[in-house]
């Protein structure tokens, strides 16, 4: 599996909080899956409930372009 990549940093630290758990999101390990491909990444995650946040710029940028590439494989 390729080395994990970090496409998003929470800046400033603590600006994102989990509404349910009332705690700041932290950098956590996650994996994107699409068409049987997996990509290890680091994303903002709630340390309590494990909610993983995919920021808009990531979803519309890198994620979308990888989706396109995989769809045409």
């Amino acid at each position: 599996m390729p080395a994990e990549k970090n496409y998003y940093t929470i800046d400033p630290e603590g600006k994102l909080t989990c509404l349910k758990c009332k705690v700041p999101l932290v950098k956590g390990k996650a994996k994107f899956m699409y068409l049987d491909n997996g990509f290890p990444v680091e994303l903002p995650v709630c340390p309590v409930c494990g909610f993983i946040y995919v920021p808009e710029e990531l979803a519309l940028g890198k994620v979308a372009s990888v989706e396109r590439a995989l769809e045409d494989k």
């Binding site: 956590g28 390990k29 899956m33 290890p40 994303l43 494990g50 993983i52 979803a59 989706e67």
Partner: peptide
Amino acid sequence: SAYSHRMTVVKRE
């Protein structure tokens, strides 16, 4: 605003 992606995202141990 609203946005979407097709990839699934899961927690990784």
